[in-house]
Structure formats: C-alpha cells, structure tokens
C-alpha cells in the first residue's frame, strides 16, 4: 500500500435542468492507494452515485480532475482524456451496480452478459472467451451450467454475482461498487461482501465502495469518506472515523447505527429537518441548517476541507471546539 492509484482534485459535476443547476458533486478531493477500499457514505441524494459514475467515466465532470495511475505506470486525468485511451482504461476501471435486476439485460444469457466486455474489447477466439467466462464465473461462485440460463432464473444475490463477474472478466484494477449490496437481504449481503473481500485479495483490486450502510462500510473499508449535499465533509481511515469523528454530520450518522449490545447507552443525535435542496444549497457551511453546534461563522463561510490530524480531513469550523463523540466500541471478549 504505497502507490496512489486515484487522486481526485476538486471534482465537480453539475446538472442543468430547466435553468436550475444542481450541484450533485461539488468540489470533492481525496486520494486512495492501490489495494485499499474507500467507503463513501451519506444519505440518499448526497451525490455518492454521481461521484462514482463521474470517476468511472459515465458522466463528464464539470470541472476538476481525477488522476488515475494506470497499469502501465502512466497517470491519466480521467476528466480530460481522448476517447481511444478511455476505451483502454475501461478495461481497468469497472463498476458494480446497485440494482441486480435492472443491471442485467433480461434478454441475454448469463454467458452473453459476462462475455460482453470481452467481445467488445478483445479479439479472442470462441474457446478463449468461454474459458475466461467459466473461470470468472467459478470465481464468483456461479456454477458453469448456470451460464446458459437467463437472469430471470436467479435470485438477487446470484444476480449480483453475475454483475460482479461481468465487472471482473477483464481483470480490472479499480472497481466502483455503487451500493453493490444495498438491494440484497442481510445474509446475502454478508456473502457478497465477503466475496468482494476475497476477490480483492485474489485479484489485487482497489474498491470504491459506495453505500449508505455504515456497518457494511466499516466492515469492508480501509478509509471512509462522508458526503453531504455534494461535498465531502470528512475523510479518514475507518478506525478514526468510527472512533473519533470530527464532523457533526458524521457524529449524527454514527449515532444512528444500532449497536447490538443492551448495556451500551448510545444517545441518538437526531438530525432536524430534511436534506436541503441541492439546487439551492444553504449559504456558508452546507450542513449548518441541521447542525446542533452551528455558530455565526457557519452561516456565512464555507469551511475548508483540510487535514486536521494526519490522514484525517474534515470540513468544519468547529472541529477544535465542539465535543463530537464517536462510538465507544465494546472491547472484544467482553
């Protein structure tokens, strides 16, 4: 874990709709190393998915850059790259989708779905494709006889395995998991998360794991970024985010995670009001309308996203003054 694989600098993605600009992704910066997993959390509509899709190249960013170090060691800015090179990089950056139902074409067999990226990018013989698809299918836990079936034969968990196989078949290096387990029920979630972890070790993958489920993110991530209203409000390694959050929003999110221990007295910090309209975000700190520590300064000035402790980035004026709690974890064995 040394090589920086992705460096996002001031990335913005605005959508224009009927004269209103929606800042779905607003000035986001972070970097991640090869082989690690970065979790992105936040409520619905905070721009997690847009961030993921902008990095993967589905959207053209409005400004900013995403520097990606490719397998050949060169660094490419994904936001400003010619089409030919992008097509090559597609092999290295892949995505796993949230909805295992709408992400698989119901009119194609599992084999066709998994082999589609291979056929689009490589000139391979039929046998080679077959071999590769079978190999990857077995790797994600699909029986090879399933390949002749259509997606309607499968449950959500199995469908997600098909989606994972499609993402992996070209041996990518960076995978964006967009709520990859959110649509699955809890027991299946655990299976898929563990599968993703195993595959990461096996195939040397780097994940951006987008989710709203904090416990899943805690389980899989090395670092976590917390998003609110299109902005990144906190970014640090998983342990410090969960034990020593520095942003009031992170604190509120963490307080909502149920702890399976009746002795723990965990105070819920309710967030007042709704998430503001991203087309018309509040002035100053975007969180000030719902922040219980809000001061005069928060109304007027946008807090800078900067490193407070080593590797711990926060965007809050009050980090030094407020009494923000983390989760006091019960020690193991107790």
């Amino acid at each position: 874990m040394s090589e920086v694989i992705l460096k996002v600098n001031n990335l913005c993605k605005y959508f224009d709709s009927k004269g209103v600009t929606i800042r779905a992704v607003n000035d986001i910066s972070f970097e991640m190393e090869k082989g690690e997993t970065v979790g992105i959390v936040g409520e619905s509509g905070c721009g997690k998915t847009t961030l993921g899709r902008t990095i993967v190249g589905a959207y053209v960013p409005s400004s900013g850059s995403a520097e990606y170090r490719a397998a050949d060691g060169e660094v490419y800015d994904l936001s400003n790259i010619d089409k030919k090179k992008m097509k090559e990089l597609r092999k290295e950056i892949q995505m796993i989708f949230q909805d295992p139902y709408s992400s698989l074409d119901p009119r194609m067999t599992v084999f066709d779905i998994i082999s589609e990226p291979l056929k689009a990018n490589f000139k391979l013989k039929k046998e080679e494709i077959e071999e590769k698809v079978k190999f990857i299918a077995e790797k994600v836990g699909l029986k090879t006889e399933f390949l002749k079936r259509y997606p309607h034969a499968f449950s959500g968990g199995q469908r997600q395995r098909i989606g994972i196989a499609r993402a992996l078949v070209m041996y990518p290096r960076l995978i964006i998991c967009d709520e990859a387990v959110s649509a699955l029920d809890v027991s299946v979630q655990a299976q898929v998360v563990n599968l993703l972890k195993d595959l990461q070790k096996d195939m040397d993958l780097t994940y951006i794991f987008i989710s709203h489920d904090l416990s899943v993110v805690e389980h899989i991530s090395d670092r976590v970024g917390v998003m609110y209203l299109g902005r990144m409000v906190e970014y640090a390694d998983t342990a410090s985010i969960f034990e020593k959050p520095m942003h009031p929003y992170t604190e509120a999110l963490l307080s909502a995670v149920p702890i399976p221990d009746p002795d723990m007295n965990n105070e819920r910090i309710p967030l007042a009001g709704e998430i503001p309209n991203p087309a018309n975000p509040p002035k100053g700190c975007p969180f000030h309308t719902r922040c219980r520590y809000c001061t005069e300064k928060c109304h007027t000035e946008v807090p800078e996203f900067r490193e407070r402790e080593k590797g711990h980035f926060v965007a809050c004026h009050l980090t030094d003054t407020s009494m923000i709690k983390g989760i006091v974890k019960p020690k193991e064995g107790m």
């Binding site: 892949q94 989708f97 074409d105 589609e116 689009a120 990018n121």
Partner: peptide
C-alpha cells in the same frame, strides 16, 4: 436509462452495438 445499457457502455461496447443488442430487442 437502464443500468444494463450503462454497464454495456462502461464495458466499452459501441453505440451501434448497444442499439442493436440492447435497445432494439428491448
């Protein structure tokens, strides 16, 4: 807007092939 069309695009499938293989059968 279906995810599988986006998936095909991200996999590097050409526009023409997406129309013929995903949209028209759809």
């Amino acid at each position: 807007k279906e995810d599988y069309v986006l998936a095909a695009r991200l996999a590097g499938v050409s526009d023409f092939k997406i129309i013929v293989k995903h949209l028209v059968p759809g």
